[in-house]
Design a protein around this nucleic acid. Structure first.
Lengths: 158, 158
DNA sequence: GATTGATTGTCTACTAGGAAACAAAAAAAT
DNA sequence: ATTTTTTTGTTTCCTAGTAGACAATCAATC
């Protein structure tokens, strides 16, 4: 029952114990690993996955409100304000405050923004269909399915 | 083939398009979701999941080197320096520079550190065996298995 | 043994993201 | 109509984590 717990000193072997069965731990590691791949292959295109997803969603949902975007992408409102502001400065996104409700901000891609997204979307989806090391195609699909289910993305998002 | 792309304006419905099939996107969302749960339930115990995992691994591998710890937990060396320094200040971790190699730092839990970990480990593992909303027990186990495989944690780590 | 190169941890400066207070507008209550 | 409450975005300040230069030590080569 008692683990040995010798000095670990010079070795590279590490016992992770229960952490290996912790969803939080595994998901954190998985994100770092997956994002490393993204950066390695997509960094040259000027798109960090988080930021780019914002552009994609605006492209798919013209006029989407900033707050809705934030909640669906699980980005804090304070943060999305900065992102959108930066996109606006780059001329990729246009903000519009409608007369019906002057609190909200509706977002659309500019022509340049549309071009920016279109140019990169293929590369991204191509990359996304790749199967990560260590998994088979079937396992990858299963993983995607389970994550969707965990996130409640199986049915249309509302 | 062509999506409709009406103005999204006042609705809460958002089309995420291909992002729903993107491992990077899903894993990012999953981490935020899972960590929210951790914080909600474990925040009161003074343990953020990342930091606590460092303590757990030191506890399981007394004398583990700082660099090894960093690479296994996918934390940058610059960052783990700060973490360990903070733990040292709190009296939870002891650093030792061995004579055989005076570059490295070997880490152990102090008595207080051991107590700190022991007090919280049960809560953590209890929490970790919980099944997240939307998944069955079997699905949760499968998800864990797939993540382990993705990360190469199926065989003993070396 | 001296020199060169690799490892390991640390430091400084920077970026991403978050918490909390705030202001403006809309909605609800009186 | 006026007041109160809620929603939405913004601002300021703060923390977590990173990038890259650095110093110390060890290993390898001449």
């Amino acid at each position: 029952m008692e683990a040995t717990l010798e000095r670990n000193g010079a070795t590279d072997e590490v016992d992770l114990g229960e952490l290996c069965r912790s969803l939080g731990f595994l998901v954190r590691l998985a994100q770092i690993r997956v994002f490393e791949n993204y950066f390695a292959e997509l960094g040259q295109y000027d798109m960090r996955p988080g930021e780019f997803s914002v552009l994609v969603v605006i492209g798919l949902n013209p006029g989407v409100r900033q707050g809705v975007l934030a909640s669906k992408l699980m980005i804090k409102r304070a943060h999305i304000t900065k992102l959108v502001r930066a996109f606006e400065d780059q001329g990729l996104v246009a903000r519009r405050i409608p007369d019906e409700d002057r609190r909200v901000v509706e977002l659309t891609l500019t022509r340049a923004g549309r071009a920016f997204v279109d140019e990169r979307l293929d590369v991204l989806t191509a990359f996304d269909t790749k199967v990560p090391d260590g998994l088979t195609v079937g396992e990858r699909d299963q993983l995607v399915l389970l994550l969707q289910k965990l996130l409640g993305l199986s049915e249309p998002v509302r």
